[in-house]
C-alpha cells in the first residue's frame, strides 16, 4: 500500500494487532461486508481522536475537521459500493485444463470511475482470481487463470472486493451471476497414421494448405519457423498438408462416450482429449481467409457441424462437459474414437 503504516516503522506488536483487526469483516447488508485496511485503522483511530477532542472542547473548527475527514470516509464507502455495483463482468476465455491463461482484457466502462477491484469466483475446486483496474471510462482485466479439471462450470457467485478510492476500507460484495466457464481437456495428439507414418491423407510434397496452432507432440519439422520468428504471441504455427481433393471431403469423427467398467476414468479423459485435438485441427480458424475443411463431430448422440461458428462453440461446450454415456455414438460413417475393445 502506498500509505502502509508499516512504512512508519511501527513496532511489530502494533502491526500484528493491526493485522488482526484487518482480518475482521463486518456485515453491512446482505451480500456486503466491510473490512479495514491497515491505513484505514490508523485513520479511524486518528479520526476518533479528532472527534474526542472536538466533543470535549466544543471547538467547532475541530468539528469541521472531524466532519470533513468522516465525510471523506463515507464518500469513499459510497464510491466503492458504486464501483462494485457498476463493474461490468469480464468475458472469460475458454480455458484448458492444467494450462495457465493470462487474461489481459480492456473494455469500456459504463460510468466514469477509478479504482482497482479484485474479483474471485469458484470454478470447480479451483478459484479464479482477477483484478479490474478502472480509470476514466476504461476497464482493464488482469488475471492468471488456471483450472486443473476439465468441465463445463457455471459460476453463480462472484466475490468483488475493493479498497477504492482511498485505500481505507476493504469493501466486499457478492454478486449473483450466471457465468459459464468452459475448461477444455488437455489435447492428446491424435494422428491417424498411414503406412509411412505421415498424417493420413495429408502429405503431398511440399505443399501445405493452411496453418494450425501447435500442440504438444507435433513434429518440429512441421512448425512454420519463419512465421514463428516474428511472432509475438509465443504460439507456433504448424503446417497442414493435404491434397486439394481432401480439403473438399468432409471429415467426420464419431466419439463413443461409453466407458467400459474396468477402465479408469483417465482413459475417458484421454479419449476426450483426443477428440479435442481433432476438433482443434478441423475446427474454426482464426484466420478467416484460410481454407477450411468441412468437418463434423459426433459426440455420443450429438452432431456438430464445425464449419458453423455457433455449432463449433457448442461442440467445445459439449467436449468440456462430456460425461460417460451408455449409448453408442450416432451415425455410421467417419473415424470412430472409442474405448470399447480398448481393454
Amino acid at each position: 500500500m502506498a500509505y502502509d503504516p508499516a512504512d512508519l516503522k511501527l513496532p511489530a506488536w502494533l502491526l500484528s494487532l493491526l493485522d488482526r483487526v484487518v482480518r475482521l469483516r463486518l456485515p453491512l447488508a446482505p451480500g456486503w461486508r466491510l473490512g479495514f485496511t491497515r491505513p484505514g485503522i490508523i485513520f479511524v483511530a486518528g479520526l476518533s481522536g479528532v472527534w474526542a477532542a472536538a466533543l470535549y472542547s466544543g471547538n467547532n473548527l475541530l468539528y469541521l475537521c472531524g466532519a470533513m475527514l468522516l465525510s471523506l470516509m463515507l464518500a469513499a464507502l459510497l464510491q466503492g459500493s458504486y464501483l462494485l455495483r457498476r463493474l461490468p463482468m469480464p468475458v472469460l476465455p475458454m480455458l484448458q485444463a492444467g494450462e495457465t491463461r493470462v487474461l489481459y482484457q480492456t473494455m469500456p466502462l459504463p460510468a466514469v470511475c477509478s479504482g482497482v477491484v479484485a474479483v474471485a469466483c469458484a470454478v470447480g475446486d479451483a478459484s479464479l482470481q482477477l483484478s479490474a483496474r478502472c480509470h476514466g471510462r476504461e476497464l482493464r482485466w488482469d488475471g492468471r487463470l488456471r483450472v486443473e479439471q476439465r468441465g463445463l462450470f457455471s459460476a453463480r457467485e462472484l466475490l468483488l472486493s475493493t479498497t477504492a478510492p482511498l485505500g481505507l476500507f476493504l469493501l466486499c460484495c457478492t454478486r449473483s451471476v450466471a457465468m459459464e466457464v468452459v475448461v477444455l481437456p488437455v489435447p492428446v495428439l491424435f494422428l491417424r497414421m498411414d503406412s509411412s507414418g505421415n498424417e493420413a491423407g495429408s502429405f503431398s510434397g511440399d505443399e501445405w494448405h493452411d496453418l494450425r496452432a501447435y500442440v504438444a507432440g507435433d513434429s518440429p519439422s512441421r512448425i512454420h519457423w519463419r512465421k514463428a520468428q516474428g511472432e509475438t504471441t509465443h504460439t507456433w504455427a504448424v503446417k497442414r498438408f493435404g491434397a486439394a481433393g481432401d480439403l473438399q471431403a468432409k471429415a467426420c469423427l464419431r466419439v463413443d462416450l461409453r466407458r467400459p467398467s474396468g477402465l479408469p476414468y483417465s482413459a475417458f479423459e484421454q479419449l476426450i482429449g483426443q477428440a479435442w485435438y481433432w476438433v482443434k485441427q478441423h475446427g474454426e480458424h482464426e484466420d478467416a481467409g484460410a481454407i477450411r475443411q468441412p468437418a463434423e463431430l459426433i459426440l455420443g448422440a450429438r452432431h456438430f457441424d464445425l464449419a458453423d461458428a455457433v455449432e463449433y462453440q457448442s461442440a467445445l461446450r459439449a467436449i468440456a462437459g462430456a460425461e460417460p454415456a451408455l449409448q453408442p455414438p450416432a451415425g455410421r460413417d467417419g473415424l470412430l474414437l472409442s474405448l470399447i475393445g480398448a481393454d
Binding site: M1, A2, Y3, S114, G115, V116, R133, P165, L166
Partner: peptide, 13 residues
C-alpha cells in the same frame, strides 16, 4: 489518496 492507494496493485499508482 485515490492515486496512491493503487500502488500495491499491478500497474502501480
Amino acid at each position: 489518496a485515490a492515486c496512491l492507494y493503487g500502488l500495491g496493485w499491478p500497474g502501480g499508482d
